[in-house]
Design a protein around this nucleic acid. Structure first.
Lengths: 129, 129
DNA sequence: GTACCGTCTGTAGCAACTACAGACTCAAGC
DNA sequence: GCTTGAGTCTGTAGTTGCTACAGACGGTAC
């Protein structure tokens, strides 16, 4: 499999695939005589894993840990569960923050009387107290 | 006012103040004989504006537009309202995305039977279909 | 005078890519 | 056989919004 095929099979950009290789997430594949990267199914599996974890919002560092853990099949999956739970907490915090922000911004917009900037409540809210 | 005072008055780091100056968001202030930046109340007002807009999640580009608009007091505040509404939509989209993510991650975590990695449903979910 | 803090400029780093530049390879059409 | 276009190669620089130095200088308290 050439890099373009691997990329489109995983909805990834070619540059991103090379980037993952550079940072050590994806092992360097064999090369053809023309120095093209030649991927096998194990690369496809690994890249799929990375992309799905990324889609779930895991950082690349978390993905790296998950990959390491997934390589040791005999180990307890406690650590995996832990990483996922920490991430879930992060998401909950983000949702909370954004919801509070949304409320505040909604209030600010709601106060707009659509006059001139001089009377604009939005600008006023942002200005000095 | 020296840069440290301005920074602490607006809960900003000194480096960030200098950064805002460098990218043209904050006008370069006068200098003392020792080449220290000397700020006035207009700088305080402008930096407060920037920080509050940032707290509401506006990008620096949006802040730049809001600052330009707020300088023309006679103009209608339609444009201001527009920027704020676009931003509100962005936030709504982000909340939606995160909520969907949260649901999915929660499902994945819920499937974990706390055995070995070989049977781990979390790893399995991430792996190839 | 001597600590110790604050300030100065300039540069490099963070996450996670993305977008080039300039050279090479390959497959299809004429 | 030759050209054209697409794909690939390496390497570097850009993105957002800061943050963290390094190394030099200024100001103040004891």
């Amino acid at each position: 499999m050439k890099i373009g095929e691997l990329a489109s099979a995983t909805a990834t950009k070619v540059e991103t695939v090379r980037y993952y290789e550079k940072i050590g997430l994806l092992p360097p594949p064999a090369r053809t005589s023309a120095n093209y990267r030649a991927y096998g199914t194990e690369h496809l599996a690994r890249l799929s894993f990375i992309r799905r974890a990324r889609d779930l919002g895991f950082t690349l560092e978390a993905v790296r840990e998950l990959l390491t853990l997934s390589d040791d099949k005999a180990q307890s999956c406690e650590a995996v569960d832990g990483i996922a739970r920490v991430h879930l907490n992060d998401i909950d915090r983000k949702i909370g923050d954004l919801t509070a922000l949304r409320r505040e911004l909604d209030r600010v917009i709601g106060s707009c009387r659509h006059g001139t900037v001089a009377d604009c409540k939005i600008i006023e809210t942002l200005g000095p107290r």
